[in-house]
Design a protein around this nucleic acid. Sequence first.
DNA 1: TAGTGAAAGTGATAGCCTCTAACTAGCTCT
DNA 2: AGAGCTAGTTAGAGGCTATCACTTTCACTA
Lengths: 215, 215
Amino acid sequence: MTMTEGTSPRERYRVRVRAEIKQHAWEQMATTGMSALSLNAIAKQVGMSGPALYRYFASRDELITELVRDAYRSLADTVRAARETDADVAGLARAMRKWALTDPHRYFLIYGTPIPGYHAPGETTEISFEIMSVLIDAHAALSRAKPATPFDAHLDAHRHWAGDHPASSATLHRALSFWVRIHGVLSLELAGHFTGMGFDPALFFDDEVRGLLEN
Amino acid sequence: MTMTEGTSPRERYRVRVRAEIKQHAWEQMATTGMSALSLNAIAKQVGMSGPALYRYFASRDELITELVRDAYRSLADTVRAARETDADVAGLARAMRKWALTDPHRYFLIYGTPIPGYHAPGETTEISFEIMSVLIDAHAALSRAKPATPFDAHLDAHRHWAGDHPASSATLHRALSFWVRIHGVLSLELAGHFTGMGFDPALFFDDEVRGLLEN
DNA sequence: TAGTGAAAGTGATAGCCTCTAACTAGCTCT
DNA sequence: AGAGCTAGTTAGAGGCTATCACTTTCACTA
């Protein structure tokens, strides 16, 4: 076979270097943020000079896309793991906050200001669905009877985003609300909008989650 | 007097050019986003070449700071105007969404991913307080009796951020929740996270506001 | 084992960018 | 009218992304 199948030495080396590049990219991003991510600086840290990096990533955008994909993957794994151990919605919320606080830049890479020309690859929407799926599962367990809102009816007619999940549209609604409320309190905390205010963001977060469950 | 007080011709010219620069900066930002804002390109649009712009803004950061300040000011004015005409909380929410949809980049300039090295000037925290003050006012009008949460008690001990506003800590809590929930649903909509999902973001927004009032 | 072809890495370079420095033209005020 | 300040210029340093032509290094094969 003329085609090198499986893992040739070259292929293995390539994978290793790509991983090393991404590693340094994450480190640089944790300090300087995404917009200041420099391929030049990364190349020097890896030990090669400048343009060599383009053998591994066609462009800055491609590297960023890879980071976004990994960030999504990490969040999905975290949420899934939390669902498997803790199971309940509050546990999910705690896991998500912990994940976000671990590396705020990684959170903003997913949920922050959209990059100008950048378009997320199709794969990320699949992972996004995977996350939503877990959220819906968790909320299906605690669906209590609540008066249906006009939006529930609307969701009934527009639930294709939930795939073929058998949950009621009230549950879908609840999962959506969970998502946006968690994101609201979390992103403002991570962006530092609470810093001058004096209260404890963790307590506020917990209370938001509690309000969410009473809803 | 050797100091040119009031508005000398030079001073008026300077103000006019600064305004023109900011105008072009907003236009460029509406298309390319903040991270790709180029002083060079703006200078050419204004009609002067490159470094002349540094006579008016000491650095790219200073221009951005000015834009952030103006964005805050615009939001505060919008919220205040909405409070004076519509008065109720739902009207405030609608006004904020309308303001955000008018120019999403402007919204993200305030509430989006924090800029790496950038630190907001003190004035923005004052305007931020001004906005919160209006939110608190609006919520004071509809405070219903609700079981106090632990966070209410915590807020009672940490309410210095509300200045000397006479509202109850339950009202403060409500205003905070309003803020984070509006931001949650709004920022996800603006960032395009609902686009593939099919449902109407406006309906979702309205329903979040309604849930907020039932809370 | 020697040779061959692909891949990895290099420096040079173009074209952006921010920002500084030295210099010129023009306005303002005495 | 003259003096001084200011707005504007070009040149350039140093950073960035990205491309190109070139060399080295490796892996597989005849």
